[in-house]
Simulated assay, not measured.
Amino acid sequence: MTQDGTRPVEIDTSKPHPARIYDYLLGGKDNYEVDRQAGDQLAAVAPEVWISVRANRGFLQRAVRHVIDSGVRQILDVGTGLPTSPNVHEIAQEAEADVRVAYVDNDPIVKAHADALLNRAGTTSIVLADLRDPKSVVEHPEVRRIIDFDQPVALFLVAILHFIRDAEEPERIVATLRDALPAGSFLVLSHATDDFAERSAAQAIYNNATASMNLRPRARVERFFEGFELVEPGLVQVPFWRPESTPPEGSAQIGFYGAVGVKKA
């Protein structure tokens, strides 16, 4: 039994897993041969993927610092994926020690890894819930223990919505989460796109994975920010969102949009 009374996680290594593919592309160790093969296949048809995942990670880190500098002291990170240091709570709490962070993922493997790193009695916790059921996220008692929805919250949906199919109504999902947030809250979002290169071959690799890849154009990604006011520079490719140094060569081909929005009153 695990520390929370659940049975040990049985890991399916017969199919590549998006979180483990991402971990491999970031240079992590929490992946299996099937994930590495998928990552290499992805890189073969979309060579920019190596710098893309790192650029997306850099966007997340800069966005964390931005929301903390803006006065927010609560972060709800949904679809967090496998822990990669520095994690969101490490970045946030380095700036302000009192920041509270609730991580949410629907994968027991992710939760098991995060549980090993987090002190759930403190100001950071990991919750097993599914983004496709957004009410289960905002109403989860452990989320409610960490997050006070009467105060501004930074909602992070980083590299997760492209694993939600159109039939699962991603706009409805984001709207439900938005409606749970008070004015002055933030939405930090990144999303994969094929606006800069034809990527059907890359998309097809995920057909054999545990979740499909659903690339969307800029106009569609912008719709997720309904009810939010975008902060400068708006919705851009992730390496160009408030870069702290010169973006790496090849950044113009990176197929990730990113933006930060503030919920209107």
Score class of each variant (00 low, 15 high):
Ala112Gln: 15
Pro16His: 10
Tyr257Lys: 05
Gln253Gly: 15
Ala44Trp: 06
Thr13Met: 14
Val127Glu: 06
Phe196Tyr: 07
Pro152Ala: 03
Ile146Asn: 00
Ile109Gln: 13
Gly122Arg: 09
Phe156Ala: 00
Leu76Lys: 05
Glu229Thr: 13
Leu230Ile: 02
Gly5Leu: 04
Arg199Glu: 01
Asp150Gln: 11
Lys15Cys: 13
Ala46Leu: 12
Arg144Leu: 02
Arg242Asp: 08
Phe163Val: 06
Ile11Ser: 12
Val53Ser: 07
Leu60Trp: 02
Val110Asn: 07
Pro86Ser: 02
Glu226Lys: 11
Ala38Phe: 14
Arg145Ala: 06
Ser14Gly: 14
Ser190Gly: 14
Asp23Met: 02
Pro47Asn: 04
Val137Glu: 06
Ala46Pro: 10
His89Ser: 11
Ala154Phe: 00
Ile160Leu: 02
Ala116Gln: 10
Pro217Cys: 07
Asn208Met: 15
Ala95Pro: 12
Ile51Asp: 07
Val9Trp: 10
Ser14Leu: 09
Asp98Gly: 15
Leu128Ile: 02
Ile68Met: 03
Ser70His: 01
Pro141Asn: 10
Phe163Ala: 03
Lys111Phe: 06
Pro108Arg: 08
Gly258Gln: 08
Leu117His: 11
Leu187Ser: 03
Ala211Gln: 04
Pro141Lys: 08
Ala63Phe: 03
Pro108Ser: 12
Lys15His: 13
Val238Arg: 07
Arg223Ala: 13
Phe256Gly: 14
Arg216Lys: 07
Ala252Asn: 14
Gln151Asp: 09
Val153Lys: 00
Val53Gln: 10
Val158Asp: 02
Asn207Trp: 11
Gln253Arg: 13
Leu235Tyr: 03
Ala202Phe: 01
Gln237Trp: 03
Ala102Cys: 02
Pro47Glu: 00
Ala219Phe: 14
Val67Tyr: 05
Ala63Asn: 04
Pro108Ile: 05
Leu60Glu: 01
Val158Pro: 04
Arg223Leu: 12
Arg216His: 01
Arg132Val: 08
Glu171Trp: 11
Val238Cys: 13
Val137Arg: 01
Leu235Glu: 03
Phe156Tyr: 01
Ser212Leu: 15
Phe186Tyr: 08
Ala19Pro: 09
Val9Phe: 10
Leu215Thr: 02
Asp166Phe: 11
Asp166Gln: 13
Arg220Val: 15
Leu76Asp: 08
Pro83His: 01
Gln93Pro: 15
Ala192Gln: 13
Trp241Gly: 12
Pro248Ile: 07
Pro18Gly: 07
Val143Ile: 03
Ile109Arg: 14
Gly184Gln: 00
Gly28Arg: 03
Arg73His: 12
Ala154His: 08
Val9Asn: 12
Ile126Gln: 03
Ala121Ile: 06
Val49Asp: 07
Asn56Leu: 09
Ile68Trp: 06
Ala209Lys: 03
Ile11Lys: 09
Pro239Cys: 09
Lys15Phe: 12
His89Trp: 04
Leu128Asp: 06
Arg62Lys: 04
Ser190Phe: 07
His89Arg: 10
Ile146Cys: 01
Asp12Thr: 09
Arg218Asn: 12
Glu90Asn: 09
Asn207Thr: 13
Phe256Cys: 14
Asp130Glu: 04
Arg62Cys: 06
Leu161Met: 08
Ala197Asn: 00
Pro47Ser: 00
Ala204Ser: 14
